[in-house]
């Protein structure tokens, strides 16, 4: 029975993706269309390009920029967010400006940053930070402000110092909301990584894909798009795993609250 259940779940999870890939394969295998090359060709290029030299030359630099930008945004966003969340005057003063900066489509900053900081690695990271910082910052502010009043008062009553209050009350209380912000930041960061490299760069995943497109290397281009999709999926899955570990206490709490109505 358990085995049957397991098999059914595997079938549900893999059935449709397998069917779609098979469909792609079958409909494209004899394709003569220039823009939709046969899937086997694309996969062949995938193995040749990305699993070999280009991985170190293009994929790794891209990922390093993305992760650096993401971590910098996380640190700045959380630090500023806590400061703004705890100080009402600061928050209200900064709100209209933040509202504007958040509404600015992050990709328009790519040419701006190219002017200010050039097209080096630092500029690419700056592009990523300029988009990723806002969801982290705003979610941290909200998370800090939504902390339970009773807990705040309890901390006050017991004379708990500022540092300890931050460490043991404010940050854990805001953690679920911060995680939501980080998740948004991760997908924005990936987009900005690609756009930043498409706009002006000398290496990287976005750069290579555009290069393939401009030189009409169609199967290579599709293989790059597939790789980018896989990276997006892998990062999101990785984030979920980390979130489940770090926020296990919160997810469990919410689950049990749900069950008890």
């Amino acid at each position: 029975m358990n085995i049957l259940n397991f098999l059914r779940r595997v079938l549900y999870a893999l059935g449709l993706p397998a069917a779609l890939v098979a469909l792609w394969w079958v409909t494209s295998v004899n394709s003569t269309s220039y823009y939709f090359p046969p899937l086997p060709d694309v996969l062949d290029q995938f193995g040749r390009l990305w699993l070999a030299g280009r991985f170190a030359d293009d994929v790794v630099p891209s990922l390093v920029r993305l992760l650096t930008g993401f971590l910098v945004s996380a640190v700045i966003g959380v630090a500023l967010g806590v400061a703004l969340g705890l100080t009402d005057v600061l928050r209200r003063g900064a709100e209209p400006v933040l509202e504007f900066l958040r509404a600015l489509p992050p990709t328009v900053l790519v040419p701006v940053i190219a002017i200010v900081a050039g097209i080096g690695d630092g500029a690419k990271i700056l592009v990523i930070v300029s988009g990723c910082v806002w969801p982290v910052l705003l979610n941290t502010v909200e998370g800090v402000r939504a902390a339970d009043d009773v807990m705040i008062d309890t901390c006050r009553t017991y004379g708990i110092t500022r540092g300890a209050r931050l460490r043991h009350m404010v940050l854990p209380a805001a953690a679920p909301q911060i995680a939501a912000g980080l998740r948004q930041a991760l997908s924005i960061g990936l987009i900005l990584m690609v756009i930043g490299e498409m706009f002006a760069a000398t290496n990287g995943l976005g750069f290579s894909i555009v290069q393939f497109q401009r030189t009409f290397a169609i199967p290579q281009m599709w293989s790059g798009i597939i790789l980018l999709g896989l990276i997006g999926f892998a990062l999101s899955a990785l984030f979920t795993v980390v979130e489940k570990r770090v926020l296990g206490w919160y997810l469990g709490l919410r689950e049990s609250q749900k069950r008890n109505g």
Binding site: L14, L20, Y35, V210, Q213
Partner: peptide
């Protein structure tokens, strides 16, 4: 829902800017 869950979770995080080159060609 059961059948599509994994596909949705897979396709959703794919950044749509990845499609830009393909979209230009097509």
């Amino acid at each position: 829902r059961a059948i599509t869950a994994s596909t949705v979770e897979f396709l959703r995080p794919i950044p749509s800017v990845a499609l830009i080159p393909a979209v230009i060609l097509v």
